[in-house]
Nucleic acid binder design. Structure first.
Lengths: 178, 178
DNA sequence: TCTACTGTACCGTCTGGACGGTATTGTCAA
DNA sequence: TTGACAATACCGTCCAGACGGTACAGTAGA
């Protein structure tokens, strides 16, 4: 199926995310990505025949990574609920330095449709959580709060201090246990 | 001081938000806004000497509106806490048809700095809520959940059904009372 | 020989914005 | 009262630059 992933592909994807973060989501041009990835524009267009394909790949890569991480986290401790695993993973993700996923804004600016896979992924996850979580109220509140945390990270609002965040996370994990 | 508010200004601002929503945040061009507002490009640039000024005005208008609405809601019933008023107002805002504030994406794509006033507004509001709310845990969870709701509206994720949303809102208002 | 590029040149389109004009209304001295 | 001027609120055109994408010749490693 996949004989060998030329690692240029990955380099390009990383470069694209970097450019979006550092130069701003509106300045994600093919030239900028190519030079950031240390590749020629021709080479870029060889790997991704259009900007749209690049964006698509960016979204899909992110989804794949998150899905894998969630499965791994969940599999690591079977006694833990999926919701708890989701909370812990999301919080951890939001703390990472390269968390500001500005490429999402680039994708939306290019065409809002690019987020369709992301939407359906989230929808599926939410339905799955609904099945596995006994307390609907707790699920809704914690899920939305995580979504809020993600949003604040995305927009780089840094309203929460270190201890605020800890209080929040404890409260969410506590609610998820019930 | 201001002898006459040219209502072109407001028409343009509304037109800009409409274009961002309908044509996509990446297609918010001056030409599109002008024609949508029923004005020439020259006229647009008379009212807003640059695209940056337009974006700025868009953000500031939104902030002003939200602030006024919050004060009004809060003043209407003094027994209600500010947090409850904030929750009710935000939920209501998210239900409105023209809620998808795609212009935010346009502003970010143009220059992330445009969100600075929004950030400091939110920061101030959060600090104020912190002073007025006895239960920090409840504040953090409800505030973040509202942020999550706003985020889902913005991205047009419609994962929550009608009754789910009602359960959520009841739970949040209940937490805010404590 | 084939794959996976590099490098360069180029094209068409879109966009922000500068600029010169114009119609309407307001101000004010003679 | 009126004529001269000025400010307001636009219109329509033009242009330089950026960007996505194409074309194609060359090349180094497997």
């Amino acid at each position: 199926m996949k004989p060998r992933k030329s690692n240029s592909r990955d380099r390009i994807l990383v470069a694209a995310a970097d450019v979006a973060r550092e130069a701003g989501p509106g300045n994600l041009s093919l030239d900028a990505v190519a030079s950031r990835a240390g590749i020629s524009k021709g080479g870029l267009l060889y790997n991704f025949p259009s900007k749209a394909k690049l964006m698509q790949a960016l979204v899909e890569q992110h989804l794949q990574d998150f899905h894998a991480a969630l499965e791994a986290t969940h599999a690591a401790d079977k006694r833990e609920s999926l919701l708890s695993a989701y909370i812990r993973l999301s919080v951890q993700e939001c703390q990472e330095t390269e968390a500001a996923a500005s490429w999402i804004f680039s994708a939306i600016a290019e065409d809002p449709e690019f987020l369709t896979p992301l939407k359906s992924f989230k929808h599926q996850l939410f339905e799955r959580l609904k099945c596995e979580t006994p307390d609907l109220k707790a699920l809704l509140v914690t899920y939305l709060a995580i979504e809020g945390l993600r949003s604040m990270t995305l927009f780089e609002f840094h309203a929460l201090g270190e201890q605020d965040r800890q209080v929040l996370v404890d409260a969410l994990l506590d609610m998820a246990k019930s």
